[in-house]
């Protein structure tokens, strides 16, 4: 498990990181390193240089106001999972963070790194889609804000350009959120992960979103599930019927040695129903 040769740069600021990404050929960003370094040890990834942003100050931490949460890119999964602010403003996000990998991964891995990597088995992407997250990134053309639905393009692919660095995530406050996953017994990646958000007005479902990761190459929003719940009170039967439509959004489901595409779609239905029920119950 010896990686191929690479240079190492430690950026003291975002500006320096952006500048290094623009000037050093083949450079990759590293923060927690829990996706990139194992890939380098297997020589699946062979970057010629690393730009380490792990020690840049001011990129870590969670703040909240009545609109929602602002989470710095270097905030670890363990911090998100344990945060009282997150549990209160968006419990589903704390559940997604707590479901990632194992203790070591959660203590090192960062939210910005996970989003930029966009692994199909990652837990955050489905949650970001369902919870309506906005991602802030800084690049050579300055700062921009990206909707989660624009960020995730394809397997291991985002809309970020080569010099852009994620600096933070904003997530609207939503009590009615939940995340549930079926964990791969070896890797702990999501075989299926379902994030659900339900908001109610006067007893009727006013807003609903379901994000699914692990099933397809890139996390998706399950539109038909949401549509079939809105405008009426959520009850068990309606949730079951709605969750049964999750497969309509999962064309291109992929399988592996552990679980076929077909079984993943089945699990997605089960988890969508359970996640919707939990989210609806929290929404009140």
């Amino acid at each position: 498990m010896y990686p191929s040769r690479f240079d190492y740069h430690r950026a003291a600021s975002i500006e320096e990181a952006v500048q290094l990404l623009g000037s050093v050929e083949g450079a990759k960003l590293v923060s927690g390193g829990h996706s990139l370094i194992p890939a380098m040890k297997l020589r699946v990834a062979q970057p010629t240089a690393l730009v380490d942003i792990g020690r840049i100050e001011g990129l870590s931490g969670i703040s909240s106001d009545e609109d929602g949460l602002a989470i710095g890119a270097l905030t670890t999964h363990a911090e998100v999972a344990a945060s009282a602010a997150v549990k209160s403003a968006c419990p589903g996000l704390a559940e997604a963070a707590a479901a990632i990998g194992d203790i070591q991964v959660r203590n090192r891995g960062t939210i910005g790194g996970s989003l930029a990597h966009n692994d199909p088995g990652a837990d955050y992407p489905g949650a970001m889609l369902a919870f309506g997250a906005e991602i802030t990134a800084v690049g050579s053309n300055g700062e921009r804000t990206i909707a989660a639905s624009d960020l995730f393009v394809d397997m291991f692919t985002t809309c970020l350009d080569e010099t852009e660095v994620i600096t933070g995530v904003r997530i609207p406050a939503a009590r009615g959120t939940a995340y549930l996953k079926h964990r791969h017994p070896a890797s702990s990646y999501a075989v299926v992960g379902v994030a659900a958000r339900v908001a109610t007005e006067g007893g009727d479902v006013s807003e609903c979103a379901v994000g699914v990761n692990g099933v397809t190459g890139c996390a998706v929003l399950a539109g038909p599930v949401s549509e079939s719940l809105c405008g009426r009170p959520a009850n068990q039967d309606r949730i079951r019927t709605a969750a049964g439509r999750v497969g309509e959004s999962l064309d291109g489901a992929v399988g592996d040695l552990y679980a076929s595409a077909e079984f993943r779609v089945h699990l997605a239905e089960v988890h969508a129903r359970r996640a919707l029920a939990a989210a609806a119950s929290r929404a009140g």
């Binding site: 017994p185 070896a186 890797s187 592996d256 040695l257 552990y258």
Partner: peptide
């Protein structure tokens, strides 16, 4: 009984070369 299997694809390629695929009990 529950988790482990050393996998070969029909074409002979080896599917469980890392701990990401081979599930020892936890």
């Amino acid at each position: 009984a529950l988790t482990e299997t050393a996998g070969y694809a029909e074409d002979g390629s080896f599917l469980t070369g890392t701990m990401l695929e081979y599930a020892v009990p936890r």
